[in-house]
Simulated assay, not measured.
Amino acid sequence: MQTLLHPYLDGELDLMTSLQVEEHLRTCASCDLAHQNYLALREGLRDSALYFSGPATLQASARSAARRADAVSRPTLPMTSWRRWSMAAVLVLAALLTWSLTRIRTSPSAERLLAQEVVSSHVRSLMAGHLADIASSSHHTVKPWFSGKLDYSPPVTDLEAQGFPLIGGRLDYLNGRPVAALVYRRQKHRINLFVWPAKSGEKAAKSETVAMESQGYHLMSWEAGGMTYWSISDLDRGELSRFVKLYQAQSQPAPGVSG
């Protein structure tokens, strides 16, 4: 956690990670002490008494020494203009290529970015105490509620007999559009299931359910029947996989699950 303190102080973390750091600082005396020390150091470095401006003669002497050193280091046979430009072009091209490759290696994939959105939406629903716009355990109540609010009808299934009772549903915003969020419960754990139409031009259905973990949550995603599905919970992976298979069996043919 202490490795996150510097980016936290500089405001470089996303909202959810910042909230996690703040929650940790309230319970960890060691990290809180380090945080306070960093704050004190930052404020101390802003003290103007720490800065010293050298005399103007020192600046002039440094410039003069630099000019003399530059004159001594110049090659005996000066480069022609075209050779200088060629070398400069090669260096610029190499720098751009290195930057591009680094960016490709470090940029998160579209699926990973979407997973971060899903995690953020899940956490917001739990923090705000607003899991459902329509609170009901009946799919006959929840499914019609979305009519007129979305341009599609999300499949809503009743899994209470299997141990995953429906809590309700709400409107959310993911992947650049309004989506349906179906909320289920497993004992004291909450499951958010986000549903929206797959984009035109994409495959009609994924052959597998993709499982991943992000920031302590398990996520599973798949496509079926022209719809995209993302489920998320703090349940262990086996329990969430069981929920997904039950939902798939009730709403459409179940694809296989892979990690």
Rank of each mutant, 00 (worst) to 15 (best):
K203Q: 13
A181S: 12
L19Q: 10
G148C: 02
W99K: 06
L235G: 05
F164V: 00
S231I: 00
L246F: 08
H130D: 09
M1P: 03
T102C: 09
V179N: 04
K245H: 00
R105A: 14
G54A: 15
S214T: 11
L77N: 11
L93W: 10
P155D: 08
W145P: 03
M127I: 03
A40L: 03
V123I: 13
S138Q: 14
A88D: 01
G259Y: 15
R105Q: 01
H140N: 13
R68L: 14
K149I: 01
P108V: 09
S136T: 05
G176N: 12
S86C: 08
R67K: 12
S73D: 11
W230Y: 13
L93K: 05
V92M: 02
S214G: 05
E12S: 08
P75L: 04
H24R: 06
S18D: 11
D133G: 10
H130Q: 14
L101A: 13
L41R: 14
L171Q: 10
S107M: 12
L5Y: 03
H6A: 09
E22G: 04
G169R: 02
G44E: 13
R237M: 09
L150A: 12
D10S: 02
F164R: 02
P155M: 08
T157G: 00
Y152D: 01
L4V: 06
R83K: 15
L58G: 01
G129Q: 06
D236N: 15
A40E: 08
T3M: 02
Y173T: 10
L41E: 15
S214C: 11
K199E: 15
S18E: 07
S18V: 05
L58N: 12
S241N: 13
E43T: 10
G169M: 08
L9W: 01
G201M: 13
R190L: 09
V123L: 10
G54S: 11
E12C: 03
R170V: 02
V123M: 08
L114E: 14
S200R: 11
S125K: 02
A224I: 01
T80H: 05
M227S: 08
E12M: 10
S107T: 15
D236M: 05
R42W: 05
L150W: 01
C31Y: 07
L101V: 14
E160L: 07
T102R: 13
N175Q: 09
G44Q: 13
R112G: 00
A132S: 06
T27S: 13
P144Q: 09
S251V: 07
D10F: 02
S61N: 14
N175E: 04
G163L: 08
V123Y: 09
L235A: 04
S61A: 15
D47F: 05
N37L: 12
W196D: 04
H139G: 01
L77H: 12
G259S: 14
Y247D: 06
G226K: 00
R185C: 03
V195G: 07
R26G: 10
A89G: 10
E23T: 13
A69I: 06
I232L: 03
V183I: 12
S73T: 06
R177M: 06
S125Q: 07
L77S: 15
V156D: 01
S241W: 02
Q2S: 13
Q2E: 13
T80D: 11
R112E: 15
S233R: 00
E213Y: 03
V183S: 00
S53C: 09
R186T: 04
L246T: 10
S86E: 15
S136G: 08
M87C: 04
D236A: 07
M220V: 11
H24F: 06
D70P: 00
W145D: 04
Q59V: 08
